[in-house]
Design a protein around this nucleic acid. Structure first.
Lengths: 400, 400
DNA sequence: CCTATTACGTTCACTCACTAAACGAAAGCC
DNA sequence: GGCTTTCGTTTAGTGAGTGAACGTAATAGG
């Protein structure tokens, strides 16, 4: 039996609640479900019958011998269908076919310029989806959900990109509608940093209530988990840590940011700023990856710039920690690869500047999922959305 | 009938849910409750009988004539008992006796140095409470709840002050336990800015999901409403906007802050910093109130400093807006009195620096409740806590 | 003032979900 | 091989909520 037994709330557990148990635990016996829900044996069987009939749950062998008749075990039917997920970045994308637990089964990576616009990009995404389906021997009808995350603000409820700074041609583009014509399933669209936050949260810190995920790539952005849920703000614009303003330069000539302002975090510590500064220092690099490679060689100027970026990020993260008081801060994005050079500065600034009360239990960690956090997170977000307790009844009804 | 009829969730509405309706609407008929809950006439009567028996709801005259028999109306029994609330500031406090809706009935204001420590301060609070009770002709047994808000971080669940920067002698002091020995009712303790946020939110922007309340008094702090609820962070330390670091001075000599760091928002724009800077500029003032008075006279130096404070606050609020993307920002605290001089700078910076997506619908307003927002908010928070849907059954059981 | 109208408030049998207890079945243990 | 243990199923029973019928109270209109 998995956990002691926290009987559910006053209201009796419905089909959805029981399914949640199976999504949480690998396998359960009827007795487990009784203990976890507080429902009677008869009712548990009734629930199970419905879930089995809908193939949402399947038998999964027998339990360990206990001296008496062994209990039959059941498991969430993660192979009942598949999920398709695409993590679209500025210059590349990852696509994956996942099972219904949101676990990645097949994954594909390719370069792709998001600025070629939604028509081309989504066609490429769909090609990748079709290839993944073919490879897995699945039909489009097996697709239970599609999740797309993009490097820009999203109106989550509508599934549209809104006012993106770098995705030219995507403003108000209705991604959901595009897929709705091709697949008959829910389509979720979210900002990449939100998906990344979910990925790290669910995979490594499920018990943490507040998590801040900072992505330091070409630009700088953040996704937030608040009370265990993605926090998007009033317009889906929350987490814009990259354009917090700092003026910690010794001189007064603040760097100009891509956003038009000056002195933004991103204009000091974003990948593009690093490339700019390395070039200015006579180190010809043209991409963020080249800049990172140079830093790894130990080039003094490059390392100095990386450390400065760490301190700048630390300032911004300290501000965010002061405001949000999260339990964990996770750093991801390309620059998280130079952890050693970056983290000292980040930790230094956060612990120096934020209230001791807020930093006492705070942990600051590098991404554990690396470049896959967005993909993994989007899949989990999608699975959660599809099998949300209040939707389960509908799922079953639809099958009939 | 108040609103069209949004039938409640799948689960049938319990006693608590019905009581919530009465707390929301001034009066309701049985037909209203039927429409609002979707419950049948029989069940509504059953619920009403229980609430009437417990005196949580009382008859409230008759409805408007409709051509037939007029329906009898019922209302939340806000006079069944009283709430006692104390808003403790650094140098003064407000106490109030409220009805069970959290509406202030009698209010008292007095000066009080919070640094004299919890024993003295709480004794003074209790004296004020006893006086309010006597004045209202109420006994201690009529007190249904006590709410205390203080100018420092609070462990909300435990009712204790934790690591307060300015409340010397209060660290880990168990405020709840102090009152538990004197009154037999729930005791809520919260940070003042949280109470202020609730006050403004519930009184003026109940439909807004995200609200940022910035208090600019002697120090600078913020309370946040996220998804309609107070957001406290992992350690109750969220909202520490006063110690976000800024270095927007033309020179490099950052002012030293009370917190030990340099360049904090508060060290530029807090009331204490304003007093310091006015003195340095040869304008002898000793209190924030005197500083504000000088600004109102139009003294050029004072006005210049006030405007600078506005811009500094604007920077910090822009950062907070970028991170949280709230629907409304409310400015309170003593410095909100010089709205004219302060707000131009605040608005200028927020609209210049935050994403258009985040500021498009953003409204930035001065407190409407003024110095009473903490008191009013604490009362509402307390009323909500006591009559939370899941506690109503317990309330009734306790009466028996 | 009386009657028709209108909607209220109450009662009662019925439904439905869940429960509790009894029963038969299957597997390990001696 | 019988005994014990636990499982899985079946049964009747309970309680909350429903819906329709009924009696009632107040207004509108003649």
């Amino acid at each position: 039996m998995p956990t002691p037994a926290p009987p559910l709330a006053v209201a009796t557990a419905g089909l959805g609640d029981v399914l949640q148990l199976f999504r949480t635990e690998p396998t359960l016996t009827r007795a487990d479900v009784m203990a976890l829900t507080g429902l009677s044996r008869s009712t548990v069987n009734q629930r199970l019958d419905a879930l089995l009939a809908a193939a949402l749950v399947v038998p999964s062998g027998e339990g360990a011998p206990t001296g008496g008749r062994p209990a039959s075990r059941f498991a969430f039917n993660s192979e009942r269908g598949v999920l398709l997920v695409a993590d679209i970045g500025a210059t590349g994308m990852r696509t994956a076919l996942c099972n219904l637990r949101g676990e990645v089964r097949q994954e594909h990576e390719q370069s792709l310029d998001v600025a070629t616009g939604p028509d081309i990009v989504l066609s490429v995404v769909d090609e990748a989806f079709r290839a993944l389906l073919a490879e897995a021997g699945r039909a489009a009808a097996d697709v239970h959900g599609i999740g797309i995350d993009v490097p820009g603000p999203v109106d989550f409820d509508r599934g549209q990109v809104v006012s993106p700074p770098i995705m030219s041609g995507w403003d108000r583009y209705d991604i959901r509608a595009w897929f709705a014509g091709r697949y008959d399933c829910p389509v979720l669209v979210d900002k990449d940093v939100n998906a990344m936050a979910v990925g790290e949260h669910r995979s490594l810190y499920p018990e943490v209530r507040q998590l801040l995920m900072v992505k330091v790539g070409t630009g700088v952005g953040a996704g937030m988990i608040i009370d265990g849920e993605v926090f998007r703000g009033a317009d889906g614009a929350a987490g814009d840590i990259g354009h917090i303003q700092l003026t910690v330069d010794d001189t007064d000539n603040e760097p100009v940011c891509r956003c038009g302002n000056t002195g933004c975090v991103e204009a000091y510590a974003g990948g593009w700023a690093l490339v700019r500064d390395l070039n200015a220092a006579g180190r010809p690099v043209s991409t963020v990856q080249e800049a990172l490679a140079l830093i790894r060689t130990g080039d003094v100027t490059a390392v100095r710039l990386a450390r400065r970026a760490g301190r700048i990020l630390g300032h911004a993260i300290a501000d965010a920690v002061s405001l949000l008081n999260p339990g964990v801060v996770v750093i991801g994005g390309q620059l998280a690869q130079i952890e050693e050079q970056l983290f000292a500065g980040i930790r230094e600034m956060v612990y120096r500047r934020s209230l001791p009360l807020a930093t006492r239990k705070l942990s600051i960690a590098a991404t554990a999922l690396g470049p896959r956090s967005g993909l993994v997170g989007m899949a989990l977000l999608l699975a959660d959305s599809i099998f949300a307790a209040h939707r389960v009844e509908g799922l079953i009804a639809r099958r009939d």
